[in-house]
């Protein structure tokens, strides 16, 4: 099997995100960069498929020079080779441009299944997998928690609101990984050392022949409204307090 896993380097979940004074983005100085956790589920699933069915796993990442660390992390987990699309003109790439870069790379190689994270925890867009599938003209399975490979097709579980779907799709296809798909492995030390010597092909935008103009532009980055300090609901009547919590969850937090 030829398996591809697309990865993105993102700030750690707990990293402090400081918006630049001019609103042009975030301060990157103190940030600890990690592999996007959803992409990690994808890499893990790719490795498990390979271990079960044979084949090899290629890691592709679009990102600045530092993204190489993330490719190496995936290689340390057990992937075979990498492609790094690295070009300063892609620094402001949106999902469309990123997908175009990935598609341009993938079109030149054999593939049976492509894994992406269901979204990246930096821009939270959740589009790349689907746009990539469209560009390759193959089906997509987004936000997937279980994959079962069956020769020319795969079956997948996709949770939706209040239910879950069992979907069957012909290969090749794009699968975007959701939490719950698997528990990503911890890279072994020999794996980390071997990863340093695995081949990673570095490409620029010109070589791929893609347009680099973002379709959706972030014109301004703004800090979030200061989150109100926790509210302790007053009153003596438990029932009244419960009603108030329900109201706040509905109207203020909008989570129910």
């Amino acid at each position: 099997m030829n398996i591809i896993a697309c990865v993105k380097q993102v700030p750690d979940t707990e990293a402090q995100i400081k918006v630049k004074a001019d609103g042009s983005g975030i301060e990157e100085g103190q940030i600890k960069w990690v592999m996007n956790p959803y992409d990690e589920f994808g890499v893990e699933e790719a490795l498990r498929l390979k271990e079960k069915n044979g084949g090899d796993v290629t890691i592709i990442s679009v990102g600045p020079a530092r993204a190489m660390e993330t490719i190496r992390t995936a290689l340390a987990m057990g992937a075979d080779k990498g492609v790094h699309v690295c070009d300063p003109v892609l620094d402001k790439a949106d999902a469309y441009v990123t997908a175009a870069a990935l598609a341009a790379v993938i079109k030149g190689m054999p593939y049976d299944i492509i894994f992406c994270g269901q979204r990246a925890i930096d821009d939270d867009s959740g589009q790349v997998g689907a746009i990539l599938a469209e560009m390759l003209d193959i089906p997509q399975l987004t936000i997937i928690t279980k994959v079962e490979y069956a020769g020319s097709t795969i079956k997948a579980i996709k949770p939706i609101e209040g239910a879950q779907l069992l979907i069957e799709t012909a290969l090749p296809c794009v699968v975007t990984a959701q939490k719950g798909l698997n528990e990503p492995r911890y890279a072994s030390l020999p794996g980390i050392m071997k990863a340093k010597k695995k081949p990673v092909d570095v490409k620029n935008a010109a070589a791929l022949g893609i347009a680099v103009e973002a379709k959706a532009k972030v014109v301004k980055t703004i800090p979030p409204p200061a989150r109100a300090a926790g509210k302790i609901i007053c009153g003596d009547d438990p029932a009244q307090k419960a009603v108030e919590v329900a109201r706040l969850l509905r109207e203020e937090a909008k989570v129910i």
């Binding site: 750690d12 979940t13 707990e14 990293a15 402090q16 103190q30 600890k32 911890y186």
Partner: peptide
């Protein structure tokens, strides 16, 4: 261990 790697503490609370 991942928490220690990323935030230098076992709970993974933001290093900052």
């Amino acid at each position: 261990y991942r928490n220690m790697e990323n935030n230098s503490n076992p709970w993974g609370i933001g290093a900052h």
